[in-house]
Amino acid sequence: MTNKKILVVEDEVVLNKALQDFLGSEGFEVLVAFDGEDGVKKASKENPDLILLDIILPKKDGYQVIKEIKSKEKTKDIPIVLLTNLGSIDDVQKALELGATTYLVKADYKMEEVTVKIKEILGIN
């Protein structure tokens, strides 16, 4: 067990559930949100070690979520990894400028690779 907490903010139920299953079996504690508003709420309530964040989300989009998380003292240091399928550097660039740590293109990555990236950021071997 790594006892690290990861918040997955993703509105596509199948993708969210898949990440929950995969990361859960890798020993992470997984919290989920299906829209941006809930994502921001859970981030400040649960104080996760890392946030996986989709860009296109209901209620509040990914950019707004980053802005709010980065503006709060309590949550501003939580690393945010973008999960996107836009694959357009323009949009990703905007999110990185707002303070996201890095991004992953969902269709191009296996969850295994997503996990490697997470561990790298959290400094777990």
């Binding site: 596509e12 199948v14 993708l15 898949a18 990440l19 299953d21 995969f22 079996s25 399928n85 836009l86 694959g87 969902k106 269709a107 296996k110 969850m111 295994e112």
Partner: peptide
């Protein structure tokens, strides 16, 4: 392409679970 990529990602990850962890 964007609309196609979401279900393709879902298949991608579900298959990974089915042929790996499960």
């Amino acid at each position: 392409s964007h609309q196609l990529k979401t279900p393709l990602s879902e298949i991608n990850w579900e298959l990974e679970l089915l042929s790996g962890k499960f």
